[in-house]
Design a protein around this nucleic acid. Structure first.
Lengths: 205, 205
DNA sequence: GTCTATACTCTGATAGAC
DNA sequence: GTCTATCAGAGTATAGAC
């Protein structure tokens, strides 16, 4: 039906990515539901429609698979947050932060498997892997640093604590969030309202 | 040497607890550092000075071991928090909450292995185990419900959100806390200050 | 390039000697 | 109460057929 073979320049790798994406999807699906340690290469291979050994053609190891899923997850959350911030009112720093937080929460709570894997506790038994994963997350969270720094706070020192409270409360929300309860955007609004009223006593009255 | 056999009423179990405690300590130590899945019964047995098979005389399974560690961990955190609340000013609900949060943070961050195991992500692959563990934690967190309900909030609806923000931020702190940084009690004070100023605009000025 | 077959190690758990 | 011996299964990874 198509002329695939005609596209086979060695610089491009169109078909390989299909396979890679399928494996990555399967890995994300399993890691999210079972956790990294409890997921077997046979599980992932089965979901991807191949046998365990075949995975090693595409990924060097189970660890490499986890890192790839994390990278993709962070990328997706970051894209969602960036889009939300761009769409938000440039003149209102609090609204911009709230938009970012809402997008962050939405990704974690209702997002796909990739986003959820990022938020799970990191495997503590492999220090090198752990360092790689933490670096990925920290780079992402830097954009929240910029957002809270832009806030008109009465005490500039509070920016750091504000970031930690907001991000911490958000990341922990996966333990109590219910799909039929308060939606992510509303959760973000509540969070922001409570910390905001404390920081800008003049602007709300 | 001793008259142990004379104490052998079936209601008491004095000698068994010694061995049990040693095994539990070893399990907590390993679970904290390696996580549940990556810890083997052989690891625990080795630390406890026995062989793997011998563990099964004291505990039915690896799962039973994890539950026992969780129970002990929750009990220790709860005791620390209760003591702190009792020692706090009965007339100042905010101070009481801050004292509880400080004790909670201190247990998680500088506490022993038991407390740290409780805060780690739960094994997702065993639904029944997960439910048991979540119930343990929820029962503990109920005391924070009482503490925030006692707060003189301008909007009583905020009590629930306040609890979620504080506990979430606290539980997430293990990912950024550094032993040589801000101590737990100060972290608690910062957290409380930021959310408090937002909720009692009249009482601080 | 992709998959089958398989190697080898380690896991949680059991049975029975002591 | 602890140990020895062992099991059946699952783990990651490789070699080589196709």
């Amino acid at each position: 039906m198509d002329g695939q073979t005609a596209l086979d320049t060695d610089a491009a790798r169109p078909r390989v990515n299909n396979r890679r994406a399928g494996i990555l999807n399967a890995a994300a699906y399993r890691f999210r539901r079972q956790g990294y340690a409890a997921t077997t290469m046979r599980d992932i291979a089965s979901d991807a429609g191949m046998l365990a050994g075949s995975l090693y053609y595409h990924f060097k190891s189970k660890t490499a698979l986890l890192i790839a899923v994390h990278e993709e997850g962070v990328r997706r959350i970051a894209d969602a947050v960036d889009s939300a911030v761009i769409a938000a009112d440039p003149a209102d720093p609090w609204k911009r932060l709230e938009a970012a937080l809402a997008a962050h929460l939405n990704s974690l709570l209702d997002g796909g498997d990739y986003a959820q894997v990022v938020i799970r506790d990191l495997p503590a038994d492999e220090p090198e892997l752990r360092a790689t994963l933490i670096k990925l997350r920290d780079d992402y969270e830097d954009r929240f640093r910029a957002l809270v720094d832009a806030l008109p706070l009465s005490n500039k020192q509070d920016a750091g604590w504000l970031r930690l409270i907001l991000l911490g409360a958000a990341n922990w929300s996966k333990t109590w969030y219910r799909p039929d309860g308060t939606p992510p955007a509303e959760i973000a609004a509540h969070f922001i309202r409570i910390v905001k009223n404390g920081e800008t006593p003049g602007s709300t009255t």
